[in-house]
């Protein structure tokens, strides 16, 4: 792990302005049969920054997020056009495997969805499937990841128990630990705290801030206060199009678009 951190560190020093780093979306369109869900989306998600994706319900936030780990591949009737690049490489290019892509791009869903497996296996199954750790190293990884999300003390005595007896917040932390076990470069968070209590929400927000030192984070949120607290940048969507992409400070204090102003002040959305 320290190795990956070190790597992240050097990249951070060299990188900041390099256009190819981070997640870059070019003229992205998503259609479901005849319906346009997203159109003409072009934007950059800066590396090792937290970008909040905001907008009214149904504007396409989840759809955008799912374009970035190619979750639409499985959905019949979904068509994606344009391109998404991660660190300069187009993830929709022929020959790119979703397995490797999703290893690098983790995802957290609106509601926790732990595997119906033991708590320990929830962490170790994916890394083992990807051949990242051996069965013997897995135990160490489990402790490391659970510690990182602050769940270790709570579950160390019942690693072989079902995760469904944990609270919703603990389950979501477990899912975060599960995603982190693959050492992703990008994390896609789809309203990860919308079903959680304030204490766990605050805990997850702190984790997001810490993680952004080494991971590029895209977080969809309905909670503007949350976006203001944790995001470096904001992407504001309406009806499947980008309204404004700005730094968090600009977006909340001096937005460039009238609709952003209305959204921030609570008049729309």
């Amino acid at each position: 792990m320290s190795e990956a951190m070190g790597l992240a560190g050097t990249r951070a020093e060299s990188a900041e302005g390099t256009a190819t780093e981070g997640v870059s979306v070019r003229n992205l369109g998503v259609r479901y049969r005849d319906r346009v869900l997203l159109e003409g989306i072009s934007t950059e998600f800066r590396p090792r920054r937290v970008t909040a994706i905001v907008g009214p319900t149904g504007c396409g936030k989840t759809t955008l997020l799912r374009s970035i780990n190619r979750m639409h591949d499985q959905a019949p009737g979904m068509r994606v056009t344009g391109s998404v690049s991660i660190d300069g490489a187009d993830i929709y290019a022929p020959g790119v495997g979703v397995r490797g892509l999703r290893r690098r791009v983790g995802m957290l869903f609106q509601r926790p969805n732990p595997f119906p497996q033991s708590i320990a296996d929830n962490i170790s199954l994916a890394p083992r499937a990807h051949g990242l750790v051996s069965r013997r190293e897995a135990a160490h990884l489990v402790e490391e990841r659970l510690t990182e999300v602050g769940l270790w003390e709570a579950v160390r005595g019942r690693l072989n128990a079902s995760p469904f007896h944990l609270s919703g917040g603990q389950q979501q932390l477990l899912c975060l630990a599960r995603a982190l076990a693959l050492s992703p470069d990008v994390l896609l968070l789809d309203e990860p705290t919308s079903s959680l209590d304030p204490a766990t929400t605050e805990h997850i927000e702190r984790l997001i801030t810490q993680l952004s030192e080494r991971v590029t984070i895209l977080i969809v949120t309905h909670n503007l206060a949350q976006a203001a607290r944790i995001s470096d940048d904001v992407l504001f969507l309406m009806a499947g199009r980008v309204v404004e992409a700005a730094s968090s400070r600009t977006f909340f204090n001096d937005p460039g678009d009238e609709r952003s102003r209305a959204y921030v002040s609570g008049r729309i959305g």
Partner: peptide, 27 residues
Amino acid sequence: VPTLAREGALALGMTRHETAKVVTIPY
């Protein structure tokens, strides 16, 4: 089997075969 449960595995890059083993069958 909830789509959400299966997507948890797919989003980790697991194959359909692995997803069936890890999620669908236990359910």
